[in-house]
Amino acid sequence: MAAITLGGTPVTTVGNLPEIGTKATDFTLTSLDLSHKSLSDFSGKNIILNIFPSVDTGTCATSVREFNKKATELEDTVVLCISRDLPFAQSRFCGAEGIENVEMLSDFATGKFGKDYQVEFADGPFKGLHSRAIVVIDKNGTITHTEQVAEVADEPNYEAALKAI
């Protein structure tokens, strides 16, 4: 379990992020149009998984905005912003913010992604939601970088994620 804090209070996740050098676990998530997307839909590209609790919180919204800006400069790379928010909330946010360069995906239907990638909160007020984490996957499906953000209110290290591509 990852030991992190939420507003300074200790909380844990159901496990630890996948190991660098391992193959990324496939997933099926719901996109804004309610279709399903899996890891294989992005094969042949570098993938940044920007994982967070809810787009309706300040830091989560900031991470989507930042990756949206940075994604315009990335070649052969897709940024997937993943939470348990309903696709309707994600769509509302993207429309209001002009988010067009990242792909929003939801784990609302099963929560399996949160369990498989070990980012689901095991306790605390956000129990069942995803912790703030980054996973970078190369074109071959191998994990090259991970970051479990130690304090949920803090932003991820964008530059470290981008350097891992």
Score class of each variant (00 low, 15 high):
27 F>V: 01
28 T>F: 02
28 T>Y: 06
29 L>P: 13
29 L>W: 14
29 L>E: 07
31 S>T: 11
32 L>W: 08
32 L>Q: 04
33 D>V: 13
34 L>Y: 15
34 L>A: 09
36 H>G: 13
36 H>Q: 15
37 K>V: 10
37 K>Q: 09
39 L>Q: 13
39 L>C: 09
41 D>H: 12
42 F>S: 03
42 F>N: 03
42 F>T: 05
42 F>L: 05
43 S>C: 01
43 S>W: 03
44 G>W: 06
46 N>F: 14
46 N>P: 08
48 I>H: 09
48 I>S: 08
48 I>N: 08
49 L>V: 06
49 L>S: 09
50 N>A: 15
51 I>L: 03
51 I>Y: 07
52 F>D: 10
53 P>Y: 10
54 S>M: 02
54 S>R: 11
55 V>P: 10
56 D>A: 06
57 T>P: 00
58 G>C: 07
59 T>V: 14
59 T>Q: 07
62 T>G: 00
63 S>M: 09
63 S>E: 15
63 S>Q: 15
64 V>Y: 13
65 R>I: 04
65 R>C: 05
66 E>K: 12
67 F>M: 06
68 N>E: 06
69 K>D: 12
69 K>Y: 12
69 K>E: 07
71 A>G: 04
73 E>M: 12
73 E>W: 03
73 E>P: 10
74 L>N: 05
74 L>M: 15
75 E>S: 12
75 E>L: 07
78 V>I: 12
79 V>Y: 05
79 V>M: 04
80 L>N: 05
80 L>G: 05
81 C>F: 00
82 I>M: 04
82 I>L: 00
83 S>I: 01
83 S>F: 00
85 D>Y: 03
86 L>W: 05
86 L>P: 02
87 P>W: 08
88 F>P: 08
88 F>M: 04
91 S>L: 13
91 S>D: 13
92 R>V: 11
92 R>I: 05
93 F>M: 00
94 C>D: 01
94 C>V: 00
97 E>M: 13
97 E>N: 15
97 E>F: 06
98 G>L: 03
98 G>R: 06
99 I>Q: 05
99 I>D: 00
99 I>A: 01
101 N>W: 04
102 V>I: 01
103 E>A: 07
105 L>V: 03
106 S>A: 11
106 S>T: 07
107 D>V: 03
108 F>G: 04
109 A>Y: 12
110 T>P: 14
110 T>F: 00
111 G>F: 01
112 K>Q: 15
112 K>F: 00
113 F>S: 14
114 G>L: 10
114 G>R: 13
117 Y>C: 09
118 Q>I: 07
118 Q>L: 12
118 Q>Y: 06
119 V>E: 02
119 V>G: 15
124 G>I: 12
125 P>G: 01
125 P>S: 08
125 P>L: 11
126 F>V: 03
127 K>N: 11
128 G>Q: 15
129 L>K: 14
129 L>F: 15
130 H>K: 10
130 H>D: 02
130 H>A: 13
131 S>T: 14
132 R>S: 00
132 R>A: 00
133 A>S: 11
